[in-house]
C-alpha cells in the first residue's frame, strides 16, 4: 500500500465544508423528487389521456429525456434554464442563476420523465373496472384520477418511487462536473487544494455507500409493510 494520509480531513472546517456539500445533495434530491413526482404524474396523465396531441407531446418529451445522457441534459439546462425561467416568468432579462440553482430545474424536468413511467405503470396496474365505477358515480376523468386512481397508484408504486429517488440522490453527484460544491464537488476541490485527491475519494465512496445502503434497506422494509396491507 502507498502511504495514504487522512489526517488533513480531521478538522472542523474541512468536515464542515464536506457536510455542507452533502446537505446540498439532500436538498436537491428532496426538491427534485417532490417536483419530479408532480411533473411525472402530470406527464403520465397526459400520456394516458384520450387527447392524441397531448399524449404525443408527453411521450415525445419522455422518450427524448430517456434517450440522452443525464450529463448532456445537465449541461443543456445549465445553458437554457435562465432563458426558460425568463420565458415562464416573463421577466425583462434572464435571471442570474448559477449551476447550483439550475440543477433544481434540470433534475425536476429530467427525473419527471422517469417518474412518469413509474406512475404510468402504477395507474395501469389499477383494474379498469375502477375507472368505469368512478364514471358511473358521476366523476369526470380528472376527478376519477384524483380521488380513485392516483391515491392507489401512488401507494402501490411508493417503493419504486423511493428506489428511483435513491438513484436520483446518486445522480445529483453529477452537478460537481458543473463545478457545484456538492459532496463530491467539495471532495474534489479539497483533494486538489491539499494534494490528497486519492484520500478524499477513498473517503467519499464508503460514505455514499453507507447512505444509499441504509436508504435502500429502509425502502425494503417499507416494501414488506405495504405488501402486507395489500
Amino acid at each position: 500500500m502507498n502511504n495514504l494520509d487522512f489526517a488533513f480531513l480531521a478538522n472542523a472546517s474541512t468536515l464542515g465544508y464536506l457536510w455542507k456539500g452533502l446537505q446540498y445533495n439532500f436538498q436537491l434530491t428532496v426538491v427534485a423528487a417532490a417536483g419530479g413526482v408532480i411533473w411525472g404524474t402530470l406527464l403520465a396523465l397526459a400520456r394516458l389521456s384520450s387527447n392524441k396531441g397531448l399524449s404525443l407531446v408527453a411521450s415525445g418529451y419522455v422518450n427524448l429525456m430517456r434517450s440522452i445522457p443525464l450529463l448532456l441534459v445537465v449541461f443543456w439546462f445549465y445553458f437554457l434554464s435562465p432563458v426558460l425561467i425568463q420565458w415562464v416568468t416573463h421577466a425583462d432579462r434572464p435571471p442570474q442563476i448559477g449551476a447550483d440553482r439550475s440543477a433544481y430545474v434540470t433534475f425536476i424536468l429530467f427525473e419527471g420523465a422517469y417518474f412518469c413511467e413509474i406512475m404510468r405503470a402504477g395507474i395501469q396496474s389499477i383494474p379498469r373496472g375502477q375507472v368505469g365505477a368512478a364514471y358511473a358515480v358521476g366523476l369526470n376523468y380528472w376527478q376519477a384520477m384524483r380521488y380513485v386512481i392516483l391515491p392507489q397508484a401512488f401507494r402501490n408504486m411508493l417503493p419504486v418511487l423511493l428506489t428511483q429517488t435513491i438513484i436520483l440522490f446518486q445522480d445529483t453527484s453529477l452537478v460537481s462536473l458543473l463545478n457545484v460544491t456538492d459532496f463530491i464537488g467539495a471532495s474534489s476541490k479539497l483533494g486538489q487544494s491539499t494534494g490528497h485527491l486519492v484520500e478524499v475519494y477513498t473517503f467519499a465512496a464508503p460514505i455514499y455507500f453507507l447512505i444509499c445502503f441504509a436508504l435502500s434497506l429502509g425502502v425494503k422494509r417499507l416494501q414488506k409493510k405495504i405488501a402486507i396491507i395489500r
Binding site: 404525443l56 407531446v57 411521450s59 415525445g60 418529451y61 422518450n63 427524448l64 434517450s67 443543456w76 445553458f79 437554457l80 435562465p82 432563458v83 426558460l84 420565458w87
Partner: peptide, 16 residues
C-alpha cells in the same frame, strides 16, 4: 415524435 420536442428546444436555444 421526438422531432417536435427537439425543434422547440432548438428555437429556445437560438434566442438564448
Amino acid at each position: 415524435k421526438l422531432l417536435p420536442t427537439l425543434l422547440a428546444a432548438l428555437c429556445i436555444a437560438g434566442t438564448a
